[in-house]
Amino acid sequence: MKGAYLMSRIEIKGLTKIYGDTVALDNVDLSLEGETIYGLLGRNGAGKTTLLNLLTGKTHPTTGRVTIDGEPVWENDSALGNVFYMTEPNLYPQSLRVRDVLKWTAEFYPDFDVNYADELAQRFGLNTKKKVKELSTGYASIFKAILALASGAKILLFDEPILGMDANHRELLYKEILAHYSEKPKTIVLSTHLIDEIADLLEEVIIIKKGQVILKQTVEDLLASAHTVSGEASKVDSYIQGRKCIAWEQLHNFKSAVIFGSDQDRTLAKSLDLEVHQPELQKLFIGLTNS
């Protein structure tokens, strides 16, 4: 199924961004192969937005380069016409009505689907007669997400897409993203620090910490590579000796620890009378990005 048409492959090489004396992004190499839902995960200030801004030519890198299908993105409308970037701040003219922004966006994106945008607006209960500045935080997020989904772009980048949205709207958005992706496979990047709800939507995760990409892996492989052991503290302690432990919690004499290890390790832990469980993505993320 993959590779049916233009892949929209993103290549990032040696990308660094320095603001004053802050290294926001530190020599990042990354390639996104396309037709995948990626999670770009990192704590606040880890460099997620900087990376997305560089990907879309919104800011200049200090060094390094970004190409989409081999074309550099900086000041290149044909490369960027394939990309829709849903930014966290609302950058649309505040005094315009929502429906006018929809029309206006259609001018920039030749494959923009006005009917689909209207359908989505109806499903989410977004009043398109309202002015942009009249939208609540939740509806501003919905409005931007609708623009992204309807844009027809082959690469959709969402920066904190669910900001201010209530549980019903979040669930609806997840479903719309999946339905849209199934119908028109493309590259979708969901950048967020709220992992719990989106974990199962993702095929691959990119974890960014202090400006560096520390991990890029399929969710399935990542989860399979880790396990949680718990039981009597002394037993857990002797098991984790010499193993890669990324997090632990202790309550009195009971200890639980998150370990990177193989299937053999799991079997061994079970034979040592320890409880073995599968940690959630969020737990692994916290362990990998702490400190």
Binding site: I37, E171, K175, L178, A179, S182, D200
Partner: peptide
């Protein structure tokens, strides 16, 4: 279809 399951259960279509 796997698409319907993916949407209904909110899981990645590949899964």
């Amino acid at each position: 279809s796997t698409t319907d399951m993916s949407v209904a259960l909110k899981i990645n279509p590949a899964t």
